[in-house]
Nucleic acid binder design. Structure first.
Length: 428
RNA sequence: GGAGGGGUGGCCGAGCGGUCGAAGGCGCACGCCUGGAGAGCGUGUAUACCCUACAAAGGUAUCGAGGGUUCGAAUCCCUCCCCCUCCGCCA
């Protein structure tokens, strides 16, 4: 969602943002609509104002026992014209700001420092952390390891639910729970995030707020006519402040939640069909921050560091990548991906995505705050990041911790969460 | 699922077709008063849009949301959302 005033003031900057997203200029067209809308609005308001005056005079005349017929006739005379002007203004407003309006369907412009590029090949690696493990054997992929342990079952999962589901058992089920608990504990006790247990079913308005709707309905699971399954806890956590006017003193708000995430993975046919990398349902610990506009930049770095800390403590090697304009998601203005090293695949894979959305989501949600000094209200900034994707973290633990004998070493920090277990062995 | 009762400004609460953005109270802010505090008194206290210098003044809208009736709606009608109570069911 865009600030129409900003487009009025700086149409070139707006079009430049679109261009960086690979879109054609639209400022001129938008400003035409905007101008027409304001004219229609002014006309309608003018007529309404006159009729309000007449209505008051009619009331007064009645009070004096006079016949208001003449006044009523004058009021009626303007009625159609007003109706037309209103309808016209409403159509134009809808074309601009309605659910399918231009301002609603255009993506957030990239921040200035986002590298330009068509696709992920233009992403910029910022840093590598941790040293890659070496193996005296050819490291296996996680699904092979899990199957050999007898604790990861794709066949039965597909019998239950089809492709892109998994059944974890025993120590692996426990490992998933341990990972999520460890992450939540870290974020709540050391980084000041408030743990939230939000609904996993939301309605349209929440998904419009964060930007999944109207454009990406195909990526979501729809429960029925009124509810959708969340694709990420970003949706309920961010929408916690939808429609609110916050006191500046409560900012920043930091929320974390462990939820299941449900994604239809439309358009991912053929990608990552094996294993747990790309599932219809997965567990994720999410981080969301609601900040003052002046602090979102620093918060973005802070949030990324919080997510990185999880990997550091799990002793998993990773790298951080700045997404280029072509790889940026709809609502994000800047995104850092954290990619964990997967020895079985011999490559880094995304395990977290930390984005700042500026005021883009806040506008859609109407989430504002009242500045301490100064009047009126301002839109907050919203940020979200995985801290981390639990399923993929489990994959990384398996692939990095695998031993020649098929067992898997449990990372030290997880052992308290695993009843002291140091090693995952077959059928454990 | 069945039967009722409700949704008014930061909060409480009046209004039930006319001059209501909305009485009154509380809270909050500022001022006066005070050695200081309290009490007391006074003033102010929403959001969005239009207009405009993104000033002042003005206009329009908003009493859960959206439609309708009417010259005129917080007040009447319809649809939807939400909350509460009782019964049923249920983790």
């Amino acid at each position: 969602m865009f600030d129409i005033k900003w487009i009025r003031d700086t149409p070139d900057a707006f079009d430049r943002g679109l261009a960086r997203r690979g879109l054609t200029p639209l400022a001129e067209k938008i400003l035409e609509l905007d101008k027409a809308r304001r004219e229609a609005l002014a006309e309608a308001q003018d007529l309404q104002s006159r009729r309000n005056t007449l209505a008051r005079e009619i009331g007064a005349a009645r009070g004096r026992g006079e016949d208001p017929a003449a006044l009523m006739a004058r009021s009626m005379a303007d009625k159609d014209a007003q109706g037309d002007a209103e309808a016209h203004a409403a159509r134009l407003t809808d074309a601009l700001e309605g659910p399918q309006g231009v301002l609603m369907t255009l993506p957030n412009p990239p921040a200035d420092d986002v590298p330009d590029g068509r696709d992920e090949s233009a992403n910029v690696e910022l840093r590598r952390v941790g040293s890659l493990p070496s193996f005296s054997f050819t490291p296996l992929e996680h699904d092979t390891i899990g199957a050999a342990l007898g604790l990861m079952d794709f066949e039965r999962a597909s019998r239950l639910s089809g492709a892109r589901f998994v059944v974890l058992k025993g120590a692996l089920a426990r490992l998933e729970r341990a990972l999520a608990a460890f992450m939540l504990d870290l974020h709540t006790t050391e980084f000041g995030y408030v743990e939230v247990n939000p609904p996993a079913l939301v309605r349209d308005s929440a998904l419009f707020g964060t930007g999944q709707l109207p454009k990406f309905a195909a990526d979501l699971f729809r429960a029925n006519n009124t509810h959708w399954l969340i694709p990420t806890a970003e949706v309920p956590l961010t929408n916690l402040v939808a429609g609110e006017i916050l006191e500046e003193s409560v900012l920043p708000l930091r929320y974390t939640a462990m939820t299941w995430c449900f994604r239809s993975e439309a358009g991912a046919a053929g990608k990552d069909t094996r294993g747990m990398i790309r599932q219809h349902q997965f567990t994720k610990v999410e981080l969301v921050s609601i900040t003052h506009p002046d602090h979102s930049e620093a918060e973005h770095l802070r949030m990324t560091a919080c997510a990185e800390e999880v990997l550091k403590r799990l002793e998993l090697p990773y790298r951080v990548v700045a997404l280029c304009t072509g790889d940026l998601s709809f609502a994000a203005s800047r995104t850092f991906d954290i990619e964990v090293w997967l020895p079985g695949q011999g490559r880094y894979r995304e395990i977290s995505s930390c984005s700042t959305c500026g005021d883009f989501q806040a506008r859609r949600m109407k989430a504002r705050f009242r500045p301490k000094n100064g009047k009126g209200t301002r839109f907050v900034h919203t940020l979200n990041g995985s801290g981390l994707a639990v399923g993929r973290t489990l994959v990384a633990v398996l692939e990095n911790g695998q031993q020649a004998d098929g067992t898997v070493v449990v990372p030290r920090v997880l052992r308290p969460y695993m009843n002291g277990l140091e090693m995952i062995t077959p059928h454990a």
